[in-house]
Amino acid sequence: MSAIKDGLRFKTAFTTTAWVLIPVAIGINLIGRFFTQTLNLPLFLDTIGTTMAAFLAGPWVAAVAGVLTNLVIGLTLEATSIPFGIVNAAIGIVAGVMAAYGFLRSTGKIIVMMLCLTAITIITAMPLVVLVFEGVSGSGVDAVTGFFAASGRNMVESVLGQQLLTTPGDKVLTVLLAFALIKGVPQRYRPPFGREVIPF
């Protein structure tokens, strides 16, 4: 189980493999984001790569992948995504820690992980969306927020309503897709942390 310990410790988590994995995670995040944007889906799916990095290399590597994803998008594409790096990193940390503690070993535990990821997303995204962006994100989910706002609810309630409607589906899909991706990679090509948290 030493690989799990190494992945959980900041000092030992960043092997060369981890650094190479980070851009791959960023790329997978980007793919999910481009698809949901182009198809105008009420989803984000922009943390599949972060979640995958969390399962393969642990929380700290995933957190860096998360922050860098939004930084890369922010600095080369659209600046508004930079603050949401916090959300992306938090997802990576929660997914990585839970994976290390065996939450990928049974269906029940995976469902608990999906719930926790939903919760951490809402907790970290809410203050940003409400305080900085006055409830909007510039994406498809704004329609849902608008629906709640139209019914006379305040912005906190409207954003919370929108998040509660869209986030669970997003996180369920994210975990399932990240899991399916890793299952497609033969054990021999998975980093040691990934081999131990998903030993099949």
Binding site: F14, W19, I22, P23, I26, G27, L30, I31, F34, F35, T38, L39, V64, A65, L68, T69, L71, V72, I73, L75, T76, L77
Partner: peptide, 25 residues
């Protein structure tokens, strides 16, 4: 420099991934 590597590799991926996504769609 490792962080800088990850940033540059990530930045290189944006047009690449957008292209792939468009092609697939």
């Amino acid at each position: 420099h490792k962080l800088a590597y990850a940033y540059l590799a990530g930045a290189e991926l944006i047009p690449e991934m957008r292209l792939r996504a468009t092609q697939i769609l």
